[in-house]
Amino acid sequence: MKHTLTHLQQLEAESIHIFREVVAEFERPVLLYSVGKDSSVMLRLAQKAFHPGRLPFPLLHVDTGYKFREMYEFRDRTARELGATLLVYRHAEAGRANPFELGTQACCALLKTQALLQALRKHKFDAAFGGARREEEKSRAKERVFSFRDEFGQWDPRNQRPELWNLYNSRIRPGESIRVFPLSNWTELDVWQYIHAEKIPVVPMYFARERDVIVRDDQLIPLDEGPVPLRPDETPQRICCRFRSLGCYQCTGAIRSTAANVPEIIEEMMTIRQSERATRVIDHDAEGSMEMKKREGYF
């Protein structure tokens, strides 16, 4: 008998171990639910970690007010079907502040980072699961599984705790917290393969269909959701496309694609040459901008 696990099974086991460590060692954990595919995979792993029991923590959605309709529908349906407690936190400026006036960085800092910190403080959460993966972005490649945050929720890349074997240091003082990334070692392809193998439901936006968009700086900006100020030379077009990564509708670009189901997405990924965050406008504003956001408290 071989007694070996496949790559996906090993990743799954590692994530389950992380979920259980956190629940054993923290008083008030929460799962940051962003509605995307990584959140969907996290939820499934959490279910597996605590089977046959229920999820021992609530879900928290930090809502900017600018998510896609399909995301809101999917979010509410998922929480209902899971029987999970869903907390939605909106910044006072949610749905009012916008990237066209503030710029994408200031808008994100306010509606996502600030809002997240407020929500964590309000509920006194001491551990927050996030779906970030090390493969996604350069500064995340050096992120710990247990990412220590000071009482202001800030990340100091030069002062991270060494993380050896699968022994995670969960000691914090009151007011401090830990962001936990159970998917640290997963790649985008792993995530899709797992979604396929486990038949995990995801937001239909990931699947290609004809959508009304404008083409701006090599990005396809969707028009179905809300007002996007058009530049003089721009005209709406109907293009078969899908979303590879979900965010706010003003800042999330689609890609040209005909992949209409999970196997087709996987096949597309075998040939695609763009990283998934390429369609997220915020990462490109300034070199190293994700690192700066993380220092401020982004997850």
Binding site: T4, L5, T6, H7, L8, Q10, L11, Q193, H196, A197, P263, E264, I266, E267, M270
Partner: peptide
């Protein structure tokens, strides 16, 4: 479908 499921099947046998 076939190409993808073939890929998935082979890939599932990979180790780490």
């Amino acid at each position: 479908e076939e190409a993808a499921s073939d890929f998935l099947r082979r890939d599932a046998e990979k180790d780490l």
